[in-house]
Amino acid sequence: MDLDALIGCLTSSACLVTQTTSGFIIGMLLFLVAVGLTLIFGVLKVVNFSHGAFYMFGAYFAMTAYQVTGSFALALLCGALGTAIIGLVFERVFMSRVYGGDVLMQLLVCYAFVLIFDDVVRLVWGPEFRSMGMPAAFQVPPLSIAGGVVPPFYILLIGVALAVAAILGLGLARTRIGKVIRAAAHNPGMVSALGINTGMIYGGVFALGGLLAGLAGALAAPVRSLTPGMGFSVLIESFIVTVIGGMGSILGALIGALLIGLIRSFGSLGFPLFTEGLMYLFMVIVLVARPTGFFGKDIA
């Protein structure tokens, strides 16, 4: 425990800006993964334990696309759309067969594909650590804010995540397809009786969840090492985020992700040997005070 370092950072504008930005980066990546997870749970009532693998695929697809094209925009697009396709195929071929079944069966199917996807990555890209590198457009001097250092790429990442949050929130609340998705989450039988193909809705939501996780992986590729199994730790933290925010809540996922990001960032200064423990301790406190999480309702 190093409280002096934590207090010193909180009283220094430069350190405060730097650590807050780092916390936001962690939080925004977690949000993009967690919001897909919570969308799938909110509509399909399935805990997608294989969701971290989509994050991993997004990172590898983006790295490959960037190496081939040299365009980071195309890399983001390939990472997001590639995992959306995988998510759609996975849902239609496998997950759709265990809807309404035993929860253990759903978890076993998902966990089996975690191992399968990890081995697929080893076969295609190899078992060694890989690195995409920072795109050339962002290899520029960092911005200085109140004495703190903020790389331009971080601003892009935060902006993309906030844009996704706004689009999802407004899309689910204001558009026809959003209202249909919300109706399917509440009463799929009634939606089906109205002549709407619920299977298409389920597949679309699963693909959207995969797209968001893949986008997170693509955005993380320039600043993270790529390795088979890299999605597992992100998955665990995403579950923490969804539990804190409330399963099925987009706003809860955003707030929970930001809180976890800040806890990790500042906790690494004051409690370097207990940073992981701080996250779980915070989760336990939230669950004791509010078992459903901050916004523990259906999609909002």
Rank of each mutant, 00 (worst) to 15 (best):
I181P: 01
L258Q: 03
V150N: 08
L251K: 00
L235Q: 04
T21K: 00
L74P: 06
P272R: 02
G58F: 01
A213M: 01
V114Q: 08
T198V: 15
V180W: 10
G147S: 06
F61D: 05
Y202R: 12
L16R: 11
R174Y: 09
L278S: 08
L281Y: 04
V17Y: 08
P272E: 12
S96Q: 12
P127S: 13
L208A: 11
C15Q: 10
L254K: 02
S233I: 09
A173W: 10
A289I: 14
P152R: 12
S50V: 14
T11Q: 14
N48H: 14
I299F: 08
L273W: 10
A137Q: 11
V234L: 13
I236E: 02
G293N: 10
G189V: 08
I236M: 13
L30K: 03
A75D: 04
S13T: 15
P142I: 08
V180G: 03
G189W: 07
F57K: 05
T83R: 04
T38F: 10
M283I: 13
W125L: 09
L10W: 07
P127R: 12
L115R: 05
G270D: 11
S144E: 13
G210V: 03
I260L: 15
P228N: 04
D298F: 02
L254F: 11
S225Q: 09
L259K: 06
S225A: 13
G87E: 06
A289M: 12
K179M: 15
K45V: 00
F41D: 05
L104V: 15
Q19Y: 15
G100I: 04
G199A: 07
T18K: 00
V124G: 07
P228C: 03
G171Y: 00
R130K: 15
I86E: 00
T11W: 13
F41P: 06
G246L: 05
G36I: 06
C78N: 01
V164F: 03
L108P: 04
M63R: 03
I250F: 01
G203I: 09
V109N: 00
L3D: 10
I26A: 14
H186A: 13
S225L: 12
A165V: 00
V93S: 13
T21V: 15
L258V: 15
F206Y: 14
G270K: 03
